[in-house]
Design a protein around this nucleic acid. Structure first.
Lengths: 164, 164
DNA sequence: GATTTTACGTCAACCATGTTGACATATATC
DNA sequence: GATATATGTCAACATGGTTGACGTAAAATC
């Protein structure tokens, strides 16, 4: 299934095939973000907070600069959500030792808890999709998604993933 | 590549594997939306307008209700962007004949042009990713993305894709 | 035929999250 | 010592979501 005559006549179907790929990404993203959104709301947070704590969780000690580069937002925009997270005890900032200008970000226990809580249904959703699609499909999923990323960032992402 | 020891010890790596899948989706979506955003800006439109004209283009004659169901936003929110698109001659509304309460949406020539212009780099990005990943990977990509969608919507999406 | 439901539109207020621009401070680097 | 970098903050603004209220026309139901 989901075959959709994708490989019949590559030239003729090209545009259609691409638009399907685009739509699927939209739909998946739409539903995949809906689970966390509800939980976040109960805590007075939004999607931006989730993104922040996700990447701080995944990269403990990440600097503000690095986080900005990942999220691709301005520091003013980040500082709003980060400020809330810090004030409410979900994130702590450690002044750098090698470079004392930097602030290294860490989740507190509370932060880790919240991150797990919020991302739980999202992980469950991915787990189900992976299970049902099979290992080979998962490999393809990753390959294509990585291919969609900007050339300039691909290497760094692969590295950040391999490191684990 | 992109192998990342994903199939070594499924139990131990489960969480890590899932979080990678989540991150990849974030990164891909981030970059994949960045191309259209720039072009839209030149025309005084935003991402919301792109979504609207994309789905109207893909489903000529779609009703407002149906479009709302796809986008998952309120009618007030849609009416803002739709109003602009209509006023500026990118979209026309046809009163339904069977049900005269409905408004069937269509792109004008201008609308079709804009849609193509805006989505061109996006399609090119997907085309490249598909080319580099290969047909088998593409199949996996679709399978997993479709699996991420809410159960309730999956069938309709498959149908809307098969119809072509 | 009267009542209720549905499809659509609109007004208004509000919120989350993005932007630009300006300016300040501490620290690192040349 | 001069310059560049990392961070923070203030302020104004844009986009695109939300809720709630209300109105109209048409369809569906009793």
């Amino acid at each position: 299934m989901v075959d959709v005559k994708s490989t019949v006549n590559p030239l003729f179907l090209r545009d259609e095939e691409l638009r399907q790929g685009i739509e699927l990404l939209f739909y998946a993203y739409r539903d995949f973000t809906s689970d966390p959104d509800k939980i976040l709301d109960d805590h007075g947070f939004g999607r931006a907070h989730h993104r922040a704590i996700h990447f701080i969780n995944r990269n403990p000690g990440i600097t503000v600069q690095e986080l900005l580069a990942i999220l691709r937002i301005t520091k003013q925009s980040l500082s709003r959500v980060l400020g809330q997270l810090v004030r409410e005890g979900y994130v702590i900032q450690q002044r750098g030792t090698r470079d004392r200008r930097q602030r290294h970000l860490h989740l507190t226990e509370r932060g880790v808890e919240l991150e797990r809580l919020v991302s739980a249904p999202q992980r469950e959703r991915v787990a189900r999709a992976y299970r049902e699609a099979g290992a080979e499909a998962v490999e393809g999923y990753r390959k294509v998604l990585l291919g969609l990323v900007n050339d300039a960032d691909r290497a760094a992402i692969v590295r950040s993933i391999r490191r684990r």
